[in-house]
Simulated scan of single mutants.
Amino acid sequence: MNIQDKIAIVTGASSGLGRAFSTSLVEKGALVYGLARTEKALQELKQELGENFIPVVLDISEEKKVEEWVSDTFSKKNIPQVLVNNAGLGSFNKIEETSCNEWSGMINANLNGMFLITTNIVKLMKTTSEVKHIVNIGSVLGKVGRPESAAYCTTKFGVQGFSAALLKELRVDHIKVTCLNPGSIATDFFKTSGIESHQHMLQPKDLADTLIHILETPDNMLIDEITVRPLNPKKPD
């Protein structure tokens, strides 16, 4: 895919990995709709990236609001070619200390939200024969378990299954599906579990470059899954 002039949607765009994805896509010439719940952070990113970044304050776990935004924004003449399902929550506790609110919040953001935005966008993507691409951001914790991470691991194992099934369903409609599984990333995402970011972790810019590589593959070539880990994840002495 040639990213220039394509329409892209990035969920969880206001910080961390989503912010890096949005930046790289705009730099490649895409028009990016950046979705998040925090208006201030989105507006700050808009000031950095300019007119090719459109901030959208939206909770993707709210069914009616997602449906309304998609129908108000897009049409058969204005179809997104790229969807990056990046939004997610993480809370890391022992299972008996995990509240129902924490569990439900992760299920809603990491799975239900991904489903809601995807099902609405796919309806539009199917109306054209050009190649489109959905990239779901999974995690190494969707492949292996981790203590005090049962809820988060459950959602990311779900992302794996969602991606694998979606790929087989949508490939005949010229829609690629990729599951990108990063290891530890130098953001504040794991702060609640006592893990501070450091320079040995994966850098958001490097993962954004990986996303661009995946999107720019030839139309008849699909990277269905990729796992990216830091070479040496230990904190420097």
Rank of each mutant, 00 (worst) to 15 (best):
K6V: 05
A13F: 07
S14T: 12
L17G: 00
L17N: 03
G18L: 07
R19L: 15
R19I: 15
S22I: 08
T23W: 14
T23R: 12
L25R: 03
A30L: 01
G34N: 04
R37G: 04
K46L: 07
Q47I: 11
N52D: 00
I54F: 07
I54D: 05
V56A: 00
D59H: 00
D59T: 02
D59N: 09
E62R: 13
E62K: 15
K65F: 08
E67Q: 15
E68D: 12
T73H: 04
S75V: 12
Q81V: 07
V84F: 03
N85V: 00
N86Y: 01
L89V: 11
L89A: 15
G90S: 08
S91P: 06
S91A: 09
I95Y: 10
E96Y: 11
T98M: 12
S104G: 12
G105R: 04
A109G: 02
N112Y: 05
N112Q: 07
T118D: 01
T118W: 03
T119A: 02
T128N: 04
V131Q: 09
H133M: 04
I134D: 01
V135S: 01
G138L: 02
S139D: 05
K143I: 07
S149R: 10
C153W: 06
C153I: 06
V159Y: 00
F162E: 00
F162G: 02
L167C: 12
K168T: 13
E169F: 08
L170C: 15
H174M: 14
K176P: 05
T178Y: 06
T178N: 02
C179Y: 10
L180G: 02
G183L: 06
S184T: 15
S184Q: 14
I185D: 03
I185E: 03
T187C: 12
D188T: 11
F189I: 07
F190N: 04
K191Q: 15
S193Y: 09
K205A: 08
K205M: 09
L207W: 00
D209V: 11
T210E: 01
L211D: 07
L211V: 09
H213S: 06
P218H: 15
D219W: 11
N220C: 13
M221S: 14
M221D: 14
L222A: 14
I223Y: 13
I226P: 06
I226S: 06
T227A: 03
R229W: 09
P230Q: 05
P233A: 13
K234T: 13
P236Q: 05
